[in-house]
Amino acid sequence: MSSRSAAVSLAGVGACCALLSAVVHLVIAPEHLEEMLYIGILFIIGSVALLVAAAGLVLRDSLAAWWVGALVSAGMILGFALSRTVGLPGYHEEGWDPPYGVLSFVAEAVFLVAFFAWYGIRTTTHAPAAPVRPKVPAGR
């Protein structure tokens, strides 16, 4: 598999994961808007950002889309972990909240794995060439 086709495949995986996480968070946002307003708002903002990232991956496989998706996914995983351990301001959850918690966690984790794989391919195929040193005639 060429690095280009691997990158396209990874973009597809990333787009699917971003879409899944966005849909899950949009489904549970109304409940969280009632329970803790700022959590519901963060779910909506994160979902919109992930939808934009998914579109950017499908349409252009853009660096910005990857970074937005990776940052939002990492932030959602962090928020999930904090809300179940030390808690967030005025908000503490118990357990994995099946099926939504499990689905979103897996989607975000797989997105991050795809991002790091894509980034590894990108850096090896876009590595800057070694600088060419001019030849200096002997004796100088």
Rank of each mutant, 00 (worst) to 15 (best):
M1D: 10
M1S: 14
S2N: 13
S2M: 04
S5F: 00
S5H: 02
A6S: 13
A6R: 06
A6T: 06
A7R: 11
V8S: 05
L10S: 00
L10R: 01
A11I: 04
V13L: 09
G14W: 02
G14H: 08
A15C: 11
A15E: 01
C16E: 08
C17Y: 10
A18T: 09
A18R: 09
A18V: 10
L20Q: 03
V23M: 03
V23D: 01
V24E: 08
H25C: 12
L26C: 11
L26E: 12
V27I: 15
I28P: 00
A29R: 13
L33P: 10
E34A: 15
L37V: 07
L37S: 14
Y38T: 14
I39Q: 08
I41K: 01
I41L: 15
L42H: 03
F43P: 03
F43A: 14
F43T: 05
F43K: 05
F43Q: 12
I44P: 09
I45H: 08
I45L: 15
G46M: 05
G46L: 11
G46A: 14
G46E: 09
S47G: 15
A49K: 08
A49M: 12
L50E: 10
L51Q: 01
L51K: 01
V52R: 11
V52M: 11
A54H: 07
A54P: 10
G56N: 02
G56F: 04
L57E: 03
L59H: 06
R60F: 14
R60W: 11
D61H: 10
S62F: 05
A64D: 10
A65P: 01
W66T: 12
V68T: 05
A70V: 10
A70E: 09
V72M: 03
V72Y: 08
A74L: 15
G75F: 00
M76W: 01
I77C: 05
L78C: 08
L78Y: 10
F80S: 04
L82A: 10
L82N: 00
R84W: 05
R84D: 05
R84N: 06
R84M: 04
T85I: 00
T85A: 05
T85V: 05
V86F: 05
V86N: 00
L88F: 02
G90W: 01
H92F: 03
H92K: 12
E93D: 11
E93Y: 00
E93H: 01
E94T: 12
G95A: 06
D97Q: 10
D97M: 09
P99D: 00
G101K: 00
G101N: 02
V102Q: 05
L103A: 14
S104L: 02
S104Y: 03
F105A: 09
V106M: 00
A107C: 04
E108S: 14
A109E: 02
A109R: 00
V110D: 11
F111N: 03
F111W: 09
L112S: 00
L112V: 04
F116T: 10
W118K: 06
G120R: 13
I121R: 08
R122D: 15
T123E: 13
T125K: 04
H126Q: 13
A127V: 15
P128S: 14
P128I: 08
P128L: 11
A130L: 07
P131I: 13
P131V: 14
V132I: 15
V132Q: 07
V132F: 02
R133C: 07
K135L: 06
G139A: 11
